[in-house]
Write a protein that binds this DNA or RNA. Sequence first.
RNA 1: UGGGGUGUAGCCAAGUGGUAAGGCACGGGACUUUGACUCCCGCAUUCGUAGGUUCAAAUCCUGCCACCCCAGCCA
Length: 552
Amino acid sequence: MREELRPPNNFIEEAMVQDLQSGKHASIVTRFPPEPNGYLHIGHAKALLADFLSAAKYGGRCNLRFDDTNPSKEETEYVDNIMEDIRWLGCDWGEHLYFASDYFEKLYGFAESLIKRGKAFVCELTPEQMHEYRGTLTEPGKRSPWRDRPMEESLTQFRAMRAGKYREGERTLRARIDIASPNMNMRDPVIYRIMHVSHHRTGDKWCIYPMYDFQHPLSDAIEGVTHSMCSLEYEDHRPLYDWFLEALDWKNPPHQYEFARLNLNGTIMSKRYLRRLVEEGYVSGWDDPRMPTLCGMRRRGYTREALRNFCEGIGLAKSNSTVDTALLEHHLRESLKASTMRRMAVLDPIELCITNYPEGKTETVEIVNNAENPDLGTRNMDFSGSVYIERADFAIVPPPKYKRLIVDREARLMGAYIVKCTGYETDENGEVTRILCTYDPDSASGKSGRKVKGVLHWVDKETAMDAQIRQYEPLILEDAEGDFIARLNPHSLTIMKNAKVEKALSMATAGDSFQFIRQGYYCMDKDSADERLVFNCSVGLKDTWAKIQRSK
RNA sequence: UGGGGUGUAGCCAAGUGGUAAGGCACGGGACUUUGACUCCCGCAUUCGUAGGUUCAAAUCCUGCCACCCCAGCCA
């Protein structure tokens, strides 16, 4: 008896369900096929999670296959990092790790068989001629003079290509399809080219390499892939994908499905630009916290859960779209709030002096690490008559609906006492230098029923640590003409250098990265993604946030 | 001007002839040891547009408009 299949979440899963129910496929096989020429970014996460999760959902498997057919761009360094990032996202390819380069011999065989069937020929057109012969979007192409040469001749020449008898560009193997097709991809596309380049895995064994359009459908077929997902720009390639499988009489061939890439507001996803940022030294590396790479986001404090839920939330569809980063941040907050310890940090400190607090007295107050999660326990903080609070938490002339400290009003120091402002001191410029208060000794946290509207985060003046936090500026990207392209992570941190943090947060030192999310939700990450803390501060308040936006 | 796609709210997105899900954002309120969190409430008389078919159309038909992709021996 067939198990009940879980309802599909998108049109591709719908196709999977149909294929399973109709018996077309006994089980689902997908694949994630990165080219090892860069690091994975959040756009890849969308694709890879779709590949791995939908296969898992329907009891199938997902292969990891590196599409390494262009040795001039690919390196082993990337292979290792890509695998690490996929694992970090919680995806597992089990034994099914493959390389397109593993299939070079088979693919070569397929190419010969295409020649023997009269469906491919060796062409001697130069790159310039080939371009000219291909025609344009509105005019059909011209047939290559080599198109109808005898099959034996093509075979001999193709073997000579493999044997290294020609220089790069002197010969190509092309599929014999339709040079006049309105679909440019069908105009006798090149399927093998000569490259006297050493490959990161096969070394110098080969000097001819298959093209993507030829390799991809066949690699899928070799692996038994049933549902091959890719991005929208390959829609025009699908006829070609099908053509190769048809030409080789492949039974029950895989099918290609296309969906829209992820675009994120204010973020660039183009590998070309990301590479430039790294290579030209605008950022410290692929894992710079401002980068939208998976390793960069990990360093900034993103959780895999946030990324997975985000990708699930945006869905899979065919319309080009740009997702608001607010949605990403929502999922990060959601993922962090129940699982993370809170700490207090004062980013723009001003001293608050409690004038009726006994001289020289210190005490310890117990503060919960996360009010929503008792399992996270409590911590003790030093408290004395002098603390730092946020400059923005005190106002001489309060804006409408201001709930925090003003003269003659009470507010609670979080986890400690209720204080009442009695006055303030200023310097010669009129800048507030110290806030004076009295406290109510009977208002200790949890011991009094009194409620006040304002609650402030604070750190003890004597025991607070200085935070040496690197300050990042948003990175503005321009193209060669100086035109604005994008701001890289405009939402990531901008933290004041003279911040004060409580002792428990002293692990925040130079090089740590922070992510601005909203009041109460900064997250940080000290290399290990497990050392994640959230700290309370007020920079997320609307007025302050507006100020940050304006000044940048 | 050839071919392939896509248009549902500020942003994603369901919807497959029976009277517009959900999330984010936003607005209002309650609660609150931060204004966060939580909880309520509100948020498309209309689906790019103009016609047509039908008792009934976001869904079917026709025309038009807008945007994206394709002329690598890249993937």
